[in-house]
Simulated scan of single mutants.
Amino acid sequence: MNFIGSIQVVLFFVFYLVIFALAAWALVDCLTRPAAAFTSAGKRTRTFWIWVLVAATVVSFLSIPIPGVYLGFPSFLALLAAAAAIVYLVDVRPAVAPYSRRRGGGRGPQRGGW
């Protein structure tokens, strides 16, 4: 393998590792949120998001390329896993955060001010 090929292998490994970390972070965050916060925020249920993120985490883990080993798993599915994690982190997480006990004491959205 030439030098450029070695760099590509390392970059692909890092890329898929970042996708796995993103999916795992989204899953852990979802597991720490109360179920009532999801319905209060008008989002899909916590159970729905847990299953989506579990699938995303498993797919992204299986997609990590091990240098010299080909498992036959279609690694492009990791992009779908990344999309699911990003949707959760960018859309659902900020909507659920005000209803979480960690922020705002579970009293609903806080309206700033003095």
Rank of each mutant, 00 (worst) to 15 (best):
M1P: 07
N2W: 12
N2I: 12
N2T: 14
N2Y: 15
G5K: 04
S6T: 13
S6I: 09
Q8R: 09
Q8L: 15
Q8W: 02
Q8G: 01
V9N: 05
F13I: 10
V14F: 12
Y16I: 04
L17H: 04
L17W: 10
V18M: 15
V18P: 06
V18L: 15
I19S: 02
I19N: 04
F20Y: 11
F20D: 02
A21E: 15
L22E: 07
L22I: 12
L22P: 02
L22W: 07
L22R: 04
A24S: 07
A24V: 07
W25A: 02
W25Y: 13
A26G: 13
A26K: 05
A26N: 07
A26S: 12
L27Y: 03
D29V: 08
D29M: 15
L31W: 08
T32F: 10
T32N: 12
P34G: 03
A35Y: 07
A36E: 14
A36K: 05
A36G: 06
A37F: 00
A37P: 00
T39V: 15
T39Y: 01
S40K: 10
R44Y: 03
T45P: 11
T45L: 07
R46L: 11
R46C: 04
T47E: 07
F48P: 06
F48R: 15
W49F: 07
W49K: 04
V52M: 13
L53H: 00
V54R: 09
V54Q: 09
V54C: 13
A55E: 10
A56H: 00
A56S: 06
A56F: 03
T57H: 01
T57Y: 03
V58Y: 05
S60C: 11
S60M: 08
F61T: 07
L62W: 03
L62C: 11
S63G: 14
S63Q: 11
S63I: 06
I64C: 04
P65K: 14
P65S: 12
P65T: 10
I66Y: 08
P67N: 10
V69H: 07
V69K: 15
Y70S: 15
F73Y: 05
F73C: 09
F73T: 11
P74E: 13
S75W: 02
F76N: 08
F76H: 09
L77P: 05
A78D: 05
L80N: 06
A81L: 03
A83F: 06
A83W: 12
A83K: 09
V87D: 08
V87K: 03
V87I: 15
Y88R: 04
L89I: 02
D91F: 15
D91T: 13
V92K: 01
V92S: 02
P94H: 05
P94Y: 06
A95E: 05
A95F: 03
A95S: 15
A95Y: 01
A95G: 14
V96A: 01
V96K: 01
A97T: 05
S100M: 03
R101G: 00
R103K: 14
G104L: 11
G105L: 01
G105E: 02
G105I: 00
G105Q: 04
G106R: 01
G108D: 13
G108N: 09
G108E: 03
P109S: 11
P109G: 12
Q110H: 13
R111A: 11
G113I: 13
W114A: 11
W114H: 10
